[in-house]
Amino acid sequence: MAGLEGMEQPRRHASATAARWSPGVEDERALKALELFGNPTKAEVPLPSRPESAATARRLTQVVVLREWGLSPKIAEDAVLLVSELVGNAVRHTGARVFGLRMRSRRGWIRIEVRDPSRGLPCLMPVQEMDISGRGLYLVDKLSDRWGVDLLPRGKTTWFEIRVTPDR
């Protein structure tokens, strides 16, 4: 009997997780993030340099790309993944207390920027198949059309751009 109880536990946990996440719930959370933190298309949004801020940045990106800009789910998926990587780098490597998130669009392009107070430059490293970390900039390099770093008097802005075309 104890063996069967042990088998029941993972199923209950999996269904609880499935109940917590759904597109509707995630959309609601994205709109709440926009309300709480502000719109990164209007002005730079300051976020605390904590791992949880990656989820906030993903939600803000989702709501802006899908709802405000009306772009495809594929572009939103790529943008959400890449913003998460830039935010993760800012949180892990800069020692900042706060970083800024900004999103811009112009004809045929979207641009997402993460500003932090460190002047240390990110480094694109070669990635091996079995690597468990260090893939962030590799993903940015592969999935974006352009990316770069702008040095500022006090810090830097790391950014990526994705071309928005009818077939993408």
Rank of each mutant, 00 (worst) to 15 (best):
M7D: 04
E8H: 12
P10S: 04
H13C: 09
H13L: 14
S15P: 00
A16S: 05
R20D: 09
W21Y: 15
S22V: 02
P23K: 04
V25K: 09
A33H: 07
L34I: 04
F37N: 07
P40K: 05
P40F: 07
T41S: 06
T41D: 01
E44F: 02
V45E: 06
P46A: 02
P51G: 14
E52D: 12
S53D: 09
A54K: 14
A55R: 15
T56C: 08
R58M: 15
V63K: 02
W69C: 10
L71Q: 03
A76M: 05
A76Q: 03
D78E: 13
L82Y: 08
L86T: 02
A90Y: 05
R92W: 01
R92E: 04
R92I: 01
G95N: 04
G95L: 00
A96K: 09
L101P: 02
R102M: 12
S105F: 04
R106I: 10
G108Y: 14
I112S: 11
P117L: 03
S118L: 06
S118W: 05
S118I: 07
G120Y: 11
L121K: 13
L121F: 11
C123E: 15
L124F: 09
P126I: 08
S133E: 13
R135F: 08
G136W: 00
G136R: 00
Y138R: 03
L139G: 07
L139D: 08
D141V: 01
K142D: 10
R146K: 12
D150Y: 13
L151D: 08
R154W: 09
G155W: 06
K156R: 13
T158P: 04
T158F: 07
F160E: 01
E161W: 09
I162N: 08
R163H: 14
T165H: 14
R168L: 03
